[in-house]
């Protein structure tokens, strides 16, 4: 059985790039003062996979994301990405190494156009500095042109036609804002894309399309995807592996079908009353599969 409560931490050697894990978190802990938000979580994502983290509200999922992207430095533990130790590195460095993300409550640069938002996403891949920006030599002009073209391409790729490219992010519809955010993240050429509740606020139709899009991304662009998701249908549908966090610790991990039936998971989600609600969840996921 692949489901095991909090598998013992792997041997404490430098994470090798060739063991199939694009990202490895080893015994990661984050405490805010006395409050432990994430405790001793070990975790790995194989390259070119789609993996979900689920768990009830306040389980520490977003905190975990924030550690992966460098917004928080872990209190203890290590994180390795693509064969490099990225524990406690700055967020911009981590983005440059190839991790990009979206946010639970969309964080676009509201007063910038969709296009400019995606151009900011390419910051780490550009070189123009202070004097380059002022003097604008030919290579900077070329770089600007290329970024603009690439931003348009990204917006097209996520399904936004050119009529919205110049619109200010704040004026876009909710669904389009989500797309721009994904385009902005993709613009940094990530190897790993972290999506924080990407289907929040979407109807089943939109969710299904996004699910298909995630697969397409993985297949066409070799992007590994890690998502936090509440919509069980999406989780069961798209993920190859699921990790369940509760109260900051990992309580289960494995294939969606197995995790779904894990009693600890059911309990974490539903408290003591297991019977009816559990069946409901089961039904939804069954439909999805």
């Amino acid at each position: 059985m692949s489901v095991s409560p909090a598998t013992p931490a792997p041997p404490a050697t430098a994470p090798a790039p060739d063991d199939g894990g694009l990202l490895r978190a080893i015994a990661v802990t984050k405490a805010f003062g006395g409050l432990v938000a994430v405790e001793d979580v070990s975790f790995q994502i194989p390259a070119r996979s789609i993996v979900s983290i689920i768990g009830p509200n306040g389980a520490g999922k977003t905190t975990f994301f924030n550690m992966l992207t460098g917004l928080y430095a872990p209190t203890a533990g290590r994180i390795a990405f693509d064969g490099r130790d990225i524990t406690g590195r700055r967020p911009d460095r981590i983005t440059a190494l190839g991790i990009a993300r979206t946010f639970q409550n969309i964080r676009l640069f509201a007063s910038m156009s969709a296009l400019e938002n995606v151009q900011v996403g390419q910051h780490a891949r550009m070189k123009a500095g202070l004097f380059g920006s002022i003097l604008r030599p030919p290579w900077v002009r070329r770089e600007e042109r290329e970024t603009r073209d690439k931003a348009r391409e990204m917006l097209d790729y996520v399904g936004l036609d050119s009529s919205v490219h110049e619109q200010l992010a704040v004026n876009l519809s909710y669904g389009d804002q989500r797309r721009v955010e994904i385009a902005r993240a993709l613009a940094s050429d990530p190897k790993l894309l972290l999506l924080d509740e990407p289907t929040a606020g979407m109807n089943p139709n939109e969710s299904a399309r996004l699910t298909a899009f995630m697969r397409q991304l993985r297949d066409e662009r070799d992007v590994t995807i890690l998502l936090i998701e509440h919509d069980m249908k999406v989780v069961m549908d798209v993920s190859e592996r699921v990790t369940v966090l509760d109260h900051g610790t990992k309580i289960a991990e494995g294939e969606p079908a197995t995790v779904r039936n894990d009693p600890r998971v059911v309990e974490a989600y539903l408290g003591k009353r297991e019977s009816e609600s559990a069946d409901e969840t089961g039904e939804t996921t069954a439909e999805g599969g």
Partner: peptide, 13 residues
């Protein structure tokens, strides 16, 4: 506009 988002997009603060 948003320091957190900017840093996450690769802007060194």
């Amino acid at each position: 506009e948003d320091e957190v988002a900017a840093a996450s997009m690769g802007v060194p603060i």
